[in-house]
């Protein structure tokens, strides 16, 4: 008999397939609409946890250190991510600061914390308390985490200001660049495998 976990349904066209085990680097695509169905696992839980810890450290660096330095006629200035968000929080446009704050600080932070929580327990073979809530939150956070856009934004800002004053990248930028890669690796849809790995039972 096939269990529900053996079915795989294409989220783009509703086609049903029987799940096959994929090796690392392999991927399954839908015959009908050619969307990606599933990818072979790139990392085991231990590796994912290690990458999450690394991401947490990089997140601190990216936020504590300024991302860009500038100087003009002997005066100099620098900006961190938080200061950039704050710069938008002026009078009538404060709401956009909220959006930017979620996109580049809050969403990535929550992703790292939640991943650390569920993966830390999964590493010990346990289902984390609040596992279902954490996994649902990770799904809802994903589209709003925009570190890669922020990274490009920093590069564009550097070029934009380079014409007017002296600009140099800060420590935070390098941390940010590495963090972006890590988040892409750990926070994707692949994390859904934990449902199967931990055999979270239905009621």
């Amino acid at each position: 008999m096939t269990r529900p976990a053996d079915w795989i349904i294409c989220e783009h066209c509703d086609s049903v397939y029987l799940r096959t085990l994929l090796a690392k680097g392999e991927s399954a695509h839908c015959i009908r609409c050619s969307a990606l169905l599933e990818r072979g696992r790139r990392f085991n839980i231990e590796q994912l946890l290690a990458l999450t810890v690394a991401a947490a450290i990089l997140f601190v660096f990216a936020n504590v250190f300024p991302v860009i330095h500038i100087s003009l006629q002997g005066l100099s200035n620098e900006a961190t991510l938080w200061q950039s968000v704050e710069a938008l929080a002026q009078g009538r446009i404060t709401m956009i600061a909220l959006v930017a704050g979620i996109a580049i600080i809050l969403a990535p932070l929550l992703q790292i914390l939640l991943l650390g929580w569920v993966l830390g327990h999964a590493y010990a073979g346990q289902i984390a308390p609040g596992f279902k809530l954490c996994m649902r939150s990770l799904e809802h956070l994903r589209p709003w985490s925009m570190l890669e856009v922020c990274l490009l934004g920093i590069l564009v800002s550097i070029v934009k200001l380079a014409g007017m004053l002296h600009v140099s990248p800060g420590m935070g930028l390098w941390a940010m660049a590495m963090l972006t890669v890590l988040i892409l690796l750990i926070a994707g849809k692949d994390i859904r495998r934990l449902w199967d790995d931990l055999e979270v039972t239905s009621r």
Binding site: N77, S84, V85, L88, V149, V156, K160, L161
Partner: peptide, 9 residues
Amino acid sequence: LVVALVAAL
């Protein structure tokens, strides 16, 4: 994000 960064700097 570019406007935010530039305005902060």
